[in-house]
Design a protein around this nucleic acid. Structure first.
Lengths: 339, 339
DNA sequence: GTGAAAGCGCTAACAG
DNA sequence: CTGTTAGCGCTTTCAC
């Protein structure tokens, strides 16, 4: 390591005690402006960087924030990571990552073990792990703050960043309705996930508010996978009175629907409009490109990291109040007005 | 944090000095078997976990390993992360992640700054950052070991894990040749990447060893993107004497070629065989599913982490010798024998 | 507003 | 083979 500069060097050169240097490092408000400036100057001259191990040992902190996840979409995770990382760099934290297995019965213990072994200062939980209340509770019980990324209001605002998926799904459905579609098939996600519920409710909200009948035959359960999309698409499209539009609640399934349609000799969007959710990278690449809903994932992660670090540092960040972000409708080639 | 147990508690209860406890913690060979057992027992009874900050401060280590990356394929990175993480957990390290921008002129400084600020013990570099020699050199110059993931021999074996992409591309080309194809188009990656070179050489190797003429018109440069695949595909397929097979040097481009073929009214694989490289998640999902080459990415990452930790810990791991892993041919529906 | 001094929990000379 | 004794670099009472 090229840096061997310690707080003592800074103190000596600045002509103050190391206690004072420590004060400016920790932004204590009781330092004279003149001392602060002097110390700051020496710090940057020397390129001094406080040793995180030493700070951690003395203050029992680690400047490490943890990311525990088991999300099947690496694109989503990549955005989350970039979002968190940018604020970590800015605030002097590091991002420690922990891929997990949400089906592991010992997950709670493993998470606790992780944070206590590494002395993690705080944790960010993306879905679907964010939906496991036991983890959030156990973390708090151990004095480790956490912030959750979610699809709906599942915790207090200061530990939560949500993208309102219900309103996203409603937007999409209304767009389809306004394009003249009235028989709109819907493929939901698997049971037990918040997003499954929220997106489905958004679809139903739109139907209801436009006085459209909810036909149970148009509502099929999927599994957020390509295959389940193909299957559900076939089913929907081989019904006697088939829908003119299908809203699949994620892009993987929507792509499956496009394939199912092709099998049956239907052209998208001429014969069938198909919409997805997530704005998966493929959504823009497949032919036809997919109309979908985009969540501001990176922004969500940034916000989450800001909230978490504010909590750890004991500041009360302004960002801690608002926690709801709105997804955005992305129009592409897979949907069209009814002819 | 629930653990407040320190090395002193362990020492007291085991009836030895803390120096001895420290010895068993660090697997010193000079401890009497009886003491070791006693200490181990107390440790597990108490659920004692050494404080990493304290260890780090005393030994000037952090038990942190860094992952600096800028790979555009999140699926690849997910495998890398899972691979590294599993050995970190086993060996008592944590994985600190640093998404970067390979086009940033200050990248070298940023990396050095990262490792020195966080006292990172060692770094793993996946492609394409692994190909930037300046980073590896500067890291070593700062006393931070690093292990690189690469497509070819670019460093000494103990800091390198490679998947032999040249032999992978050769395998694929030979498979195509053995299926009766003799006009095989090739779409390379962008200039300046090792993988571009290696894969292309593999293609040429196969052609040469089967005494096939290398037609420069069949060799087109792409950019590892979907769009570049579409473009190169159109070009190759609209030539007067068009190829019967196209080997795109990654899956994104191969999918582009499939689309280009469809535009031109060609059926894959009846009229044209298409092969890719990487076994991207989509490769199995698109129709027709894609014949491709799969690198053992997670295994590579595991190996890299083992080598790195062996270096940090000063052990001389057996894994440090072999560093070449072979990619695997994955046959699917996009290729067929020539009719 | 500032400083002296006592640790935080662990490792590592250096005896014994 | 084991214990004593200093620190590692920083934060934090508690006086001044």
């Amino acid at each position: 390591m090229r840096e061997k500069v310690t707080i003592n060097d800074v103190a000596r050169l600045a002509g103050v005690s190391k206690r004072t240097v420590s004060r400016v490092l920790n932004e204590s408000p009781v330092v004279a402006e003149s001392s602060r400036e002097k110390v700051q100057r020496i710090i940057s001259e020397l390129g001094y960087q406080p040793n995180p191990q030493a700070r951690g040992l003395a203050a029992s902190r680690s400047y490490l924030i943890g990311l525990v996840y088991d999300n099947p979409d690496p694109f989503f995770m990549e955005s989350v990571i970039r979002g968190i990382s940018s604020v970590c760099i800015e605030k002097g934290y590091e991002l420690v990552i922990r891929p997990s297995d949400r089906t592991d019965p010992n997950l709670v213990d493993q998470v606790i073990n992780f944070v206590s072994r590494a002395q993690i200062d705080g944790v960010i939980l993306p879905p679907p792990i964010s939906e496991m209340d036991a983890i959030a509770e156990e973390l708090e019980a151990n004095g480790v703050p956490c912030v959750r990324l979610a699809a709906a209001q599942i915790d207090e605002p200061h530990r939560l960043v949500i993208s309102d998926e219900r309103s996203g799904a409603k937007q999409m459905t209304e767009y389809l309705i306004n394009s003249g579609h009235s028989r709109i098939g819907y493929i939901s996600g698997p049971k037990g996930l918040k997003s499954t519920w929220e997106r489905r409710e958004g679809y139903l909200d739109a139907l209801r508010s436009h006085d459209l009948e909810v036909d149970p035959d148009l509502l099929i359960r999927g599994a957020y996978t390509f295959e389940s999309g193909v299957k559900a698409g076939r089913e929907l499209l081989s019904a006697p009175q088939r829908p003119t539009a299908i809203f699949a609640s994620n892009d993987q399934m929507a792509i499956g629907v496009v394939n199912a349609a092709r099998e049956l000799g239907l052209t998208v969007p001429a014969d069938l409009s198909v919409a997805g959710f997530d704005d998966h990278e493929l959504a823009a690449q497949i032919i036809p490109s997919l109309t979908t809903i985009r969540r501001p994932v990176q922004l969500m992660a940034t916000l989450a990291a800001q909230k978490l670090i504010a909590t750890i540092d004991g500041h009360h960040d302004a960002a801690s109040d608002d926690c709801v972000l709105n997804p955005e409708l992305v129009l592409r080639d897979s949907t069209a007005p009814i002819s």
